[in-house]
Design a protein around this nucleic acid. Sequence first.
DNA 1: CTGTTAGCGCATTCAA
DNA 2: TTGAATGCGCTAACAG
Lengths: 314, 314
Amino acid sequence: MKPRTRQKVLEVIESLGYIPNKTARIFKSGKSYILGLVISQAHISEVMSNAGFQAQFKGLTEKAHKEGYNILIITSAEGDAYSYFEVIKNQLADGFIIFSPSQNDTLTSLLDEAEIPYVFNMKYSDNPQDRYYVSSDDFEGGYIAAKYLLDLNHTDIRMLVGSVKGSMLSFNVERINGFKKALAQYGVPFKEEMIVPIIGQMDQSYNAIYQLFQTQKPSALLISNEITTVAALNYFADQGYRVPQDVSIIGFGPSEFFRTLRPNLTNVGYDISWTSSKLVDLLLQRIEGKTPSFEMPKKPELVIRDSTARLRQE
Amino acid sequence: MKPRTRQKVLEVIESLGYIPNKTARIFKSGKSYILGLVISQAHISEVMSNAGFQAQFKGLTEKAHKEGYNILIITSAEGDAYSYFEVIKNQLADGFIIFSPSQNDTLTSLLDEAEIPYVFNMKYSDNPQDRYYVSSDDFEGGYIAAKYLLDLNHTDIRMLVGSVKGSMLSFNVERINGFKKALAQYGVPFKEEMIVPIIGQMDQSYNAIYQLFQTQKPSALLISNEITTVAALNYFADQGYRVPQDVSIIGFGPSEFFRTLRPNLTNVGYDISWTSSKLVDLLLQRIEGKTPSFEMPKKPELVIRDSTARLRQE
DNA sequence: CTGTTAGCGCATTCAA
DNA sequence: TTGAATGCGCTAACAG
C-alpha cells in the first residue's frame, strides 16, 4: 500500500470519527476476549467483604488484563446448577470462572455437554471429573498451623471452619485432615467438638464465637476464614481477652491482610495471586482447546507474628 | 402456531442441545446488556481493598442485575484520557461507568463526540459539562463531623484527605469547605496545617500518620478514607495511644464498615448502595436516550460511636 | 496493491 | 401459519 493512500485513509477515519464496531468483530471472529466470572446474587455480598476474595479478584483481573482479556461479572439470581447454566449459556464470554456456592456435579455435566470452557474457583468434590480448578495444599496448611500450636503446648484447640448448609467445602476438609495428622503425631486425641462449623459473615461469626466461649475456654483457635478471624479479634477485644496471652489465633489466607490486623496475626499464608493467575492460564488453555497442564498445588507458608504464644502450664 | 408443532420444535431444540448464539443476537439487536466499569490497572489494587469501593461495587452489581445487566470490568493499562478512550471504544458495553484517577475533561469530550453513554463514579470538576455522576452532600459531611468535634471542645483538629499528585478530589474539597464552615461558626481560626494530604494506602498512610505525630499532637482527626482510618487505628494501637481518650477519630464512608473496627468508630455514614443504584439509573437513562433526571445529593448522617470523646480542658 | 464479494447467526420482513 | 429472503458490520478470500 502506498504511504500516501494509507495516510489519506487514516485522515478520513479520523475526520468521520469512525469507530469499528466491536460487536461485529466479535461476531465474525467468535472471540470476545471476555472471561465471565459467575457468582450468585446471594453470595456476592459475603464474598466481596472477604479479604481472600479481594486478593483473588485482583489476581484474576490483573492476569486477564495481561492476556488481553476483561472480566465480566455475571450474577445469577439463584445459586443452583440450572440457574447458573441459564445465565452462562446466555453470555458471550469465551470462558467462565465459576464461584459456586457448593458442590456442583450437575453444573459440570451441563457445561461439558454444551462444550463451554470453564474453571472453578476451588475444588468442589472428590469426583475425578472435577479437575478444573487450582488449589493450594490445604492439607499442609492445616498441618503446619496445628503443629505450630502443639509445639507451643496448646492441646485445647478449636478449628473454626465455614460450612454451607451443614456441608463442608473441600479445602476445609483438607485443612481438618492436616489438623488431625498433627494431633495424631503429638498423641493428642481428636474430639469432634474441636471442629466448629461457622457461618463466615461478621455478625454470625461473632455470635458463634460468643456462644463457643460461653461454655468452653480453648487456649487456641485455627480460623479458616478471614471475616471470622476479624470477628474473633473483635470479640476478644470487647471481652477483654488478650491475644496471645489468653488465646492464640492462627488465620488462613493472604498474608498481607493479616498484617493489617492488631495484633499482627500469625497465619498460614496463601499465594492467591499465583493461584488466580494459574486459574486464568487453565481457562485460557481450555478456551484454546489445548490439553490443560495441571499444576501441583502450591505449599502455603506459616507466617509467625504476634497472635500466638506458648501456653503456660498451670 | 399449532401447539403440536411448537412441542416438536422444542423437542428438537432440546435434543440437539441448541443454544442461541448470544453474539449474533447482540450484533443484530445492538444491545449487549453489559455495563463497562472502567478502571486503570494501577488503581485497581488501591480501590479493591477500600471498603467504600466494595460497597459501591456491590451496589452497582446488584442494581445492574436487577435491571438485567451485567458488569464488565475493563482495565486500562494507563490512567490518562486517551488510554481510557482507547479501551472504551474497543468494548461492546452499552454504557460505561468510569473510575477515573483524576479530573478528566479531555475524556469527557472524546466520549461525547463519539456519543458513548457514560457516567463517572464521582464529581471530577466544577465544569458544568461534568454532570454525569451521583454525589453525596460532602459539604454537609465535612460540616457535621467538624461541628461534632467542636461541640466536644476539640479545636486542634487535622483533616486527613487523599490527594493524587497534589491535586484534591472534588468531594474532598467539599468536605474541607464544610470543615471550614464549622470552624468559622465556632470562631476557631483555620490554619493550612489542619489539612493533611495523604496517600490512601495502608503503609503510606501509616507512615504519614507517624510523621504527623512526631511533630504535632492534635486532639482529633477527621479521616476521609477508610484505609487511612485503619492505618491510624493501627498506629495508635502500636504506640499505646488510647482512642478516644487520647485522640478522637471520625471516619467517612459506609457505616457498616466502621462498626467492624475496634473501637467502634464514630463516622459520617454515606448510603453508598443508594448512590450506586442511582448511578446505574443515570447511565441507563443515557443509554435509552432519555434526558436524565438529576437527583439531589443525599445527606450523610453522623453516626456517633466510641471513637470520639469530650476534650478535657487542661 | 486495490476492489469486490461471501458469509458469520440471528431477527425481521415479506410472500406464499 | 409457515417458508424464504434480507441485512446488521466486519473479515477473509479472491479476482482484477
